[in-house]
């Protein structure tokens, strides 16, 4: 696909256009695992509406130059109007100062608690939203929905209604192949797979490794009853029926019905394999 500037958005380069005017940016972290270099997804997404533009998540400061270059390509001379950091954890918010400096009319949007404490210069440039609120970008509409699989309490997910894309931050970390090295605790994929969707990846979903990732990155998953959690996730999915799920730390999921059961399995295994002696089965527990 090409834009009016002559840029082509290919499946093997970032930015990749995953739906009309919705762009996938990536800056993978690279680490050595045995003899192989592995990559860790760190995704951002740009929504380029007819009237307004919005960036989801910021990546790390070390990736600012790359992110800026991808923004320049995808924005095609337009400015950035909104920045939506899904939550105030370093990989999702640490470029806020760089982005707000680059785009002086850009406002933070989302659950903007904490940012005034962490980045005092953002005070006066932040729009707080509640679950259910939406921002109309012109031809694209992003609705803020509860984050079910999350770490920090102010995490938000969002659903783009025109193309039915659910942006899920730390949820649905999706990996195909990777390392069993216990030194690593984040989603992995092989070099060359950075820009592929779930159906373009050659290998199948590795549930065992996914389970390991969930237990390591979402530490609470060892203790939280997966049935209660996944019921909330199913309700959200049933309500919105996304055609694409876009995670910050995984390949883009385009075969949602195929992948969802695997995500469920991963959370069940994370709880069951937590090594807690004498634990009762999840279903037998009662709320306090």
């Amino acid at each position: 696909m090409a834009d009016g500037q002559g840029h082509k958005y290919e499946r093997n380069t970032f930015p990749r256009e995953i739906a009309p005017n919705i762009f996938w940016f990536g800056n993978c972290l690279k680490i050595s695992v045995t003899a192989e270099i592995m990559h860790i997804h760190l995704n951002q997404f740009l929504l380029k509406g007819e009237e307004k533009t919005l960036l989801i998540d910021t990546g790390m400061p070390r990736h600012w130059d790359s992110l800026k270059a991808q923004l320049n390509i995808a924005l095609g001379g337009r400015s950035l109007d909104y920045l939506f950091p899904t939550h105030p954890e370093v990989p999702h918010c640490a470029n806020i100062p760089n982005i707000l400096d680059e785009y002086p009319s850009c406002s933070l949007i989302g659950d903007v608690r904490d940012y005034g404490l962490y980045y005092p210069e953002t005070r006066g440039r932040a729009l707080n939203v509640s679950i259910g609120d939406a921002v109309d970008l012109g031809g694209l509409k992003l609705r803020f929905v509860p984050a079910i699989l999350k770490d920090l309490p102010s995490s938000l997910w969002a659903f783009e209604e025109t193309h039915r894309i659910m942006f899920v931050a730390d949820g649905f970390a999706f990996l195909h192949a990777g390392s069993q090295n216990p030194m690593l605790d984040e989603p992995l994929h092989r070099p060359g797979e950075c820009t592929l969707t779930s159906t373009e990846l050659g290998s199948g979903v590795n549930v065992e490794l996914g389970n390991f990732i969930i237990r390591a990155a979402l530490h609470w998953s060892r203790f939280v009853d997966p049935d209660r959690l996944l019921k909330e996730m199913d309700e959200l999915i049933d309500e919105h029926k996304p055609s694409i799920i876009a995670s910050a730390h995984g390949n883009i999921i385009v075969d949602v019905d195929h992948v969802l059961p695997m995500i469920r399995d991963m959370h069940h295994k994370a709880y069951a394999d937590a090594g807690i002696p004498g634990r009762k089965p999840a279903a037998s527990r009662q709320s306090a």
């Binding site: 309490p153 060892r222 203790f223 939280v224 959690l229 634990r279 527990r285 709320s287 306090a288």
Partner: peptide, 15 residues
């Protein structure tokens, strides 16, 4: 509970 939002859904005995 404001911070550790998951406690009401969790087996907290190990913690």
């Amino acid at each position: 509970l404001a911070k550790f939002w998951w406690i009401p859904k969790a087996d907290t005995a190990p913690l």
